Simulated assay, not measured.
Amino acid sequence: MPKKLTRKALIAISSFNGAIYPGGHKTGLFYTEALHPYEVLSDAGFEVDLASETGTCGLDYNSLQLPFLAGSDKAVYDNPKHPFQVKLNSQLKKASDVKKEEYGVFFASAGHAALYDYPTATGLQVAAADIWDRGGVVAAVCHGPAIMPGILDSKTGKSIIEGKTVTGFTIEGEMIFAILDKLRADGVLPIVEAVTKVGAYYSSPMNAFDDYSITCGRVVTGVNPQSARSAAERCVRLFDAL
């Protein structure tokens, strides 16, 4: 582990909380996509903070339904005193207030909301770019890679994912959620289009909801909620090998 990097991680949270799903349900943070990385990183000895662009967030409706929220995850959600719940509900930081030089890992959690605010979330992007420039790890899961085109390498002035292989939520998955037409109407780019537009290579799993995560250099990406834990585990291994 490089001496210049602190064993401290920043998990990004989407601040968008609009109604985009059939039935008028809202998107927002996909709950386990922040909870699982928090658990993995905390268990590996990282101090973990949560931050959104505005310092506020809402929860994705689908993320609170079966099968996505069950068992021990539901127990955390139902316990207001759990450390993750406290972080999310009363200690969520505003990106512009984050002391970016303190972190060695940046992890962008998601929800469809990320497609709407991450591309212009300059506070979060600046924090991630600072971590990157100091040799740290930058990661994202599901729709989280929507932030990566705007995370720029100070040496090249280009996205940190240019020329790298990444993954993220599939077009097939958008069709399963019956949301693709809505995304098109709202003018937001699905992940495969957003990342390839800046010169990244997109890698897809066999099935939309397989646990699938990849490491390319110091970039880690996961494809869906089922991949949040494995992506975070990759972050830990990568950080410890730096």
Rank of each mutant, 00 (worst) to 15 (best):
T6F: 00
R7D: 01
K8W: 00
A9F: 00
I20R: 01
Y21P: 01
G23C: 05
H25W: 08
F30I: 09
F30Y: 11
A34L: 08
L35G: 13
L35K: 10
H36P: 09
V40Y: 07
F46E: 08
F46Q: 10
E53A: 07
G55R: 11
T56N: 10
C57H: 06
N62D: 12
L64T: 05
Q65Y: 01
P67Q: 02
L69W: 02
K74Q: 06
V76M: 02
V76D: 00
Y77N: 02
N79K: 03
N79T: 11
K81V: 07
F84V: 06
L88G: 06
L88Y: 01
K94C: 11
S96G: 08
S96C: 10
D97V: 08
E101R: 10
V105N: 11
V105G: 06
S109A: 15
Y118D: 03
A128P: 02
W132M: 00
W132T: 04
D133K: 04
R134S: 00
A140I: 02
G144T: 05
P145L: 02
G150T: 08
I151V: 15
T156I: 10
T156Q: 07
G157Y: 05
V166D: 07
T170G: 12
I171V: 15
G173F: 11
E174P: 09
A178G: 13
R184D: 08
D186N: 15
G187F: 09
I191H: 11
V195G: 09
V198L: 09
V198Y: 12
Y201D: 09
Y202E: 11
Y202F: 15
Y202P: 13
P205L: 14
M206K: 15
N207Y: 13
A208Y: 14
A208G: 14
F209H: 15
T215C: 15
T221Q: 12
G222H: 12
V223Q: 14
A228I: 09
A228L: 14
A231Q: 05
V236R: 09
L238T: 08
F239C: 07
D240W: 02
A241C: 03
A241F: 04
